[in-house]
């Protein structure tokens, strides 16, 4: 399988690549629009700030390419947030592939921000390899609004979409590559899609 990880110039490319190597794959890291468009499957990673990551995407001429992809695409963490319309983080316009906005989490007593650690899931879609009650690892200060695309969620003062799905696009707010056995099942379901 020809798996391409989009090079957005920063972030968890290292650990995402290693996670797929565990499945015997050799993902290619690329910022080249043609290579990305020709891939069987595409991973949009991202740790970092939305403004910086979106700037890198635009600078590399990738926004149109990413919007036009028809093969299975997986956005992870910030990579998932970028699939939506707009992020409150630095007032950033994102790719607009999935309707909805990204908002900052508000800290409350007993609920510090970032939301960091293992939270249990409510799962609404049995095709994503996850089950209700699975614990997965989160590390984020911003989250998308729950909506029709939400297929798994965690509770953190408000409903936090943990996985989203729209057409060929799948997103994970959590870090599947750092979520033990549950994370591996999620990645496997994407690879088998």
């Amino acid at each position: 399988m020809d798996l391409v990880i989009v090079d957005v110039g920063c972030g968890n490319i290292g650990s995402v690549g290693i996670a797929f190597e565990r499945f015997g794959l050799s993902p290619v890291i690329s910022g080249d629009p043609e290579t990305i468009a020709a891939a069987d499957k595409v991973i949009l990673p991202g740790v970092g700030a939305a403004g910086y990551a979106m700037e890198e995407i635009v600078k590399r001429g990738l926004a149109g390419t990413l919007r036009g992809l028809t093969q299975p695409v997986l956005g992870i963490c910030l990579g998932m947030q970028m699939l939506f319309e707009h992020s409150e983080e630095e007032g950033t316009d994102c790719l607009g592939i999935i309707p909805g906005r990204v908002r900052k989490l508000s800290p409350a007593p007993g609920m510090p921000v970032p939301h960091m650690g293992w939270s249990s899931l409510q799962v609404r879609d049995d095709r994503i390899g996850l089950r209700t009650g699975d614990y997965v690892y989160f590390a984020h200060s911003f989250a998308v609004d729950a909506g029709p695309a939400t297929v798994a969620s965690a509770d953190y003062g408000r409903e936090i979409p943990a996985a989203v799905r729209a057409r060929n696009f799948l997103g994970a707010q959590f870090h599947p590559e750092r979520s033990g056995e549950a994370g591996a099942r999620f990645l496997e379901s994407f690879l088998n899609a």
Binding site: C10, G11, G48, L78, S141
Partner: peptide, 9 residues
């Protein structure tokens, strides 16, 4: 570091 990688890192 927070600006480039996010506070969660």
């Amino acid at each position: 570091l927070a600006r480039d990688f996010g506070s969660q890192c």
